[in-house]
Amino acid sequence: MTGPGAADLEIPRGRLVRSRVGVASALRAAFSRELTGYARIEPDSLLADGEPGVITFAEGVPRAAYCERSAGRGERGGDSHELGRGDRPVGSDSRGVDALAALAGPGPCSVELYELPADTLVTVHDAPEFSVPPGAPAEQLADDPALADRTRERAPDDAHDGDASALESFLEDEERIAAIQKEARAEAEQRAEEWGLDGELE
């Protein structure tokens, strides 16, 4: 583990303000209600690497992201949503733009929005390894460039402006891309049969 001690990066469980929405409507809702708190994102995709994650917000602007990679899925009831904490091996989670890449891609998600007092998020928002560009979640998870623009306009001047890109992180993940290709091929072949095009398959 690098950066701040993991124990410091704990987000207390917030007050649930919205549940069972898709990523796009969750980000729009967080923006319009100027949410300070977090979104817990649970991919519904059948893709093997669809893991839950968290995006935190300050006044509706995304600030930090974290995605679990392997262990712990569905077993994290507890009193908090912890960032980078637990028994999983080092390197099995993802943070910042890498977390956005892990959360992005095809398939629907269920999202819950939680509200928290701003002071509980200060430590997380001050940790560069979790930081995300303000417009990146809207662009990369919700495919909503207009929301991304509005979010950037509201973001403070000192918001993340690093070079790292969620898209580059996504493209580095060969296994994930192979899974997308495999799923698309299977879907194409199944639909070819439904449409009477299976005779055209190679």
């Binding site: 891609g105 990369q140 891309i177 997308i180 698309a184």
Partner: peptide, 16 residues
Amino acid sequence: IPSLSDGLKVQEYARS
């Protein structure tokens, strides 16, 4: 990412 994901998908459909 959404566009690249969908582009990969359309490529796979075409390749099939």
